[in-house]
């Protein structure tokens, strides 16, 4: 069993190592000049150096603050509106067409408007992250909550649960798998969007580091923030996966 796990992990490591090897080979054999593609060793050394650098950590912190603020607001709004729309037909009648229009709208296009309205600082970026992460969370909450097995609700009602408590006692927990799926997608999107927003206009954050490095053709420094955001995304995804495993321990097939 565990050897099988090991081979799975090794199999997965292969293409990543392969990419690294090609990267190294391109550099070592002189196919790519260092000004275009710095060798991987150099990039990771620089990353390690930077992790000891307070300024770099501040940039990571700025990115994380925007990411979490935007994501959490999206979770609160998405879950709240999704549940409300699933339970109250009147709310559904209003929310459904709005979502139909707003969900496929490319939110980045709104970014200039957000800058005009909220300024260049945190607020406009957080709003953009929220707008982008909101819809997947809202939609999966809505579908999860409208698919709840009727008989679960009946069982709870018969056991004496007041109608107004059904939302919290049955529908929300029953929709949890779906809600968490939405959150997972929302989180990936938040990582992506916060970085883009920082690239387009910012004075700090990982995205800004990339743009700054690109302006001065510091190729090594261009790779560092990209790898950092990828690792951050992996870590956050892992955390959410753990949370999901724990919260859904009773549900079939997590």
């Amino acid at each position: 069993m565990s050897t099988r796990r090991l081979t799975t992990v090794l199999m997965g490591a292969l293409p990543i190592l392969f990419v690294l090897a090609i990267w190294q080979a391109l550099c070592s054999f002189g196919y790519a000049p260092p000004s275009l593609l710095p060798p991987p060793g150099k990039v990771f050394l620089r990353l390690a150096q930077q992790l000891g650098n307070v300024g770099f950590l501040d940039d990571i912190l700025a990115t994380l603050i925007r990411l979490f603020a935007g994501f959490l607001i999206a979770v609160v709004l998405g879950v709240g509106i999704g549940l409300a729309a699933a339970v109250v037909p009147a709310i559904n009648a209003v929310v459904r067409p709005l979502v139909q229009v707003l969900a496929p709208l490319p939110k980045v296009a709104l970014y200039p408007a957000l800058i005009i309205l909220f300024g260049f600082d945190h607020a406009s970026k957080i709003t953009l992250v929220t707008l982008d992460a909101l819809f997947p969370i809202l939609l999966s909450t809505y579908y999860g909550a409208s698919m709840v097995e009727q008989k679960l609700v009946w069982s709870a009602l018969a056991a004496g649960t007041p109608r107004w408590q059904i939302l919290f006692k049955v529908i929300a927990p029953a929709a949890l798998p779906s809600i968490l799926t939405g959150c997972r997608i929302g989180l990936v999107i938040s990582c992506i969007v916060v970085f883009l927003a920082e690239m387009i206009s910012s004075t700090d954050g990982l995205g800004h580091l990339l743009v700054g490095a690109a302006r001065t053709f510091q190729t090594v420094d261009m790779f560092v923030p990209l790898i950092t955001i990828s690792l951050l995304g992996l870590m956050l995804n892992g955390l959410l996966y753990g949370l999901r495993k724990y919260l859904l321990r009773g549900f079939p097939e997590v």
């Binding site: 097995e149 008989k151 009946w154 069982s155 709870a156 018969a158 056991a159 029953a174 549900f251 079939p252």
Partner: peptide, 16 residues
Amino acid sequence: GPDRGPVFQEFALFPW
């Protein structure tokens, strides 16, 4: 109401 308790073919247990 709790004076009438249902038992369904699908069990309808709370999975959580």
